[in-house]
Amino acid sequence: MKSLCVYCGSRPGNDPSFQEAAIAVGREAARRGCRIVYGGGKLGLMGATAGAARDAGGAVFGVIPDFLVEMEGVLEGVDHKIVTNMHERKMMMYEESDAFLTLPGGIGTLEELVEVVSWARLGLHRKPILVLDINGFWAPLKELLGHFVEKGLADKNLVNDLKFVKTVEDVFETAENMSLRARA
């Protein structure tokens, strides 16, 4: 895996373990030579992940729409591209990534995750999709996905399209294993 797209909040959240995990993901990506692709801002968990990767000598590529530059700022010392809208941002992040990781975040983070899962369901890609479920943050989503399947509104393979993991170490090992299976 050469590039990991990280979806996460532009806020830090109120659980310190969210920030700790974001920093650990950035550092581990740098240690493994895996570039972080992210939403381009310098705030919250996004900024923590990208800043940690940058500070550990890793490669980082941020994609931010022009209207968010003033609101979120741009992280200094990383490659970035300023685009015109959210659709362009998400497509560029998708194209630049080998796998997707979701950390805690709000509605924008959820929307990004749901979009790449939907694309996987439609057969548009086979890239690994992971969710780092810190302190059960994403447990309601996992339950909701199971509910869709249980009620006959989604194929049972929906829950196989993304992997919920508990640790940063699991993120990279699981993504590598999923990548190998996708290529087979």
Rank of each mutant, 00 (worst) to 15 (best):
L45F: 12
F100P: 00
A59T: 06
G77S: 08
N85S: 13
M93P: 01
E88K: 12
L75Y: 08
I107T: 13
L75Q: 12
F67D: 06
E96M: 13
H80D: 06
G58F: 02
M46N: 07
D55N: 14
L103S: 02
D55H: 11
F67P: 01
A99S: 13
I36E: 04
Y38K: 09
L101Q: 02
Y94C: 10
M92S: 05
G77F: 05
D55F: 07
E88T: 14
G105K: 13
R54Y: 10
L68Q: 05
H80P: 05
E76K: 11
G51L: 06
E76I: 03
S97A: 15
E111L: 09
D55A: 15
V83G: 07
K90H: 02
A52F: 08
G51S: 14
R35M: 15
K90N: 01
E111S: 15
A52Q: 04
C34W: 12
M86P: 05
G106Y: 11
A99Y: 01
A99K: 02
R32S: 11
K81D: 07
G57Q: 02
V78N: 04
E96C: 03
A59G: 12
V37R: 00
R31W: 10
R32A: 10
Y94T: 13
D55P: 04
R32P: 09
L75D: 03
E95M: 11
P104V: 07
A99T: 03
T49C: 15
G106R: 13
G40R: 04
R35W: 11
R35G: 12
H87S: 11
R32G: 14
R89P: 01
V60N: 01
E76H: 06
A50E: 04
P65K: 06
L110V: 10
F67L: 13
A29L: 12
K90P: 00
M71N: 06
V60F: 01
I82W: 06
R35H: 08
A29Y: 07
A30Y: 02
G40V: 01
I107N: 08
A56C: 09
G44M: 14
V60W: 00
A50R: 05
V60A: 03
A59F: 04
L45R: 04
V63M: 00
F100T: 00
A50H: 05
T109A: 03
S97K: 01
G106V: 10
G51Y: 03
T102W: 01
V69P: 02
F67I: 08
G62W: 03
G40P: 11
G62E: 03
H87P: 04
A50Y: 06
F67E: 03
A56K: 06
M86L: 15
F61Q: 11
D98M: 14
T102M: 14
P104E: 10
T49K: 11
M71C: 04
G41D: 07
G73E: 07
L103D: 02
E112S: 03
L101R: 00
